[in-house]
């Protein structure tokens, strides 16, 4: 099978497994709504500029997304599925990309539900710059997913996995989150991406490319040793 097909097979397997139980997706969505509600006590909607609300959105995405990413490799531990996957005649890179793509789609699904909820709760007309916002969401989410998936593999069979993953992920994600926050803050208030903010877009693309390449290169060491 070609590389792309292997990636798609792994992705389809992960999505199928998740959609049968929907445990990670439901938990992540519910958590996103919980954070959105909690944030409402911190910020009085009228005083806080809408740009800041757009920034907060990425905290919601990152926190809730971790619940999906936590499951990515942990799902394979019962019944020794991970050993079987590693022993299967597919490269670590294909396995990694397939899993990352599956998590990416799940996190994206959570975000696309959380976005309108955010708009309703905080009275933000977020869809004024719809397609640029989607671009930023996709780029930011891929950054979150690629780092999250590598660390999900790193922490899969260690003690305190649920604690370790966020502790390792968020500092590493800082540049991507910062870029996505800056752009989203502008876009939800209707400000298009201009010459001032295009740097952040470049940063997001650079982050995604660099860490995808690094992860694909290093994943074999994590899976096989």
């Amino acid at each position: 099978m070609s590389f792309a097909r292997l990636v798609l097979v792994v992705m389809a397997k992960d999505l199928r497994a998740e959609l049968r139980t929907k445990e990670a997706l439901n938990a992540s969505l519910a958590f996103a709504v919980v954070i959105l509600v909690l944030l409402s006590f911190v910020i009085e909607s009228d005083d806080v500029p809408q740009k800041a609300l757009g920034n907060l959105l990425w905290l919601v995405f990152a926190f809730a997304g971790t619940l999906v990413l936590n499951r990515s490799f942990a799902r394979e531990v019962p019944n020794d599925c991970l050993d079987a996957l590693v022993a299967a005649p597919i490269s670590g890179a294909a396995l990694f990309l397939g899993k990352a793509l599956a998590s990416f789609l799940l996190v994206l699904a959570m975000e696309l539900v959380a976005l309108p909820v955010f708009g309703i709760f905080y009275n933000v007309r977020w869809a004024q710059q719809f397609w640029p916002l989607m671009l930023v969401t996709v780029l930011g989410t891929w950054g979150v997913t690629v780092i999250g998936t590598v660390f999900s593999a790193l922490t899969v069979n260690i003690r305190l996995r649920e604690v370790m993953l966020p502790m390792l992920t968020y500092p590493m994600l800082l540049p991507a989150l910062l870029g996505a926050m800056e752009l989203t803050g502008d876009l939800v208030t209707g400000t298009p991406i201009g010459p001032d903010t295009v740097t952040w877009l470049k940063l997001l693309v650079g982050f995604d490319v660099l860490f995808t390449a690094a992860s694909v290169t290093l994943i074999e060491f994590i899976l096989v040793g």
């Binding site: 390792l168 500092p171 540049p175 910062l178 940063l203 982050f207 660099l210 860490f211 690094a214 994590i222």
Partner: peptide, 17 residues
């Protein structure tokens, strides 16, 4: 692996901030 990823991250963190 973590150490390599962390080192890659440092300059991006710096320039982004």
């Amino acid at each position: 692996v973590f150490s390599i990823l962390a080192f890659l991250d440092v300059p991006i963190v710096y320039f982004s901030i």
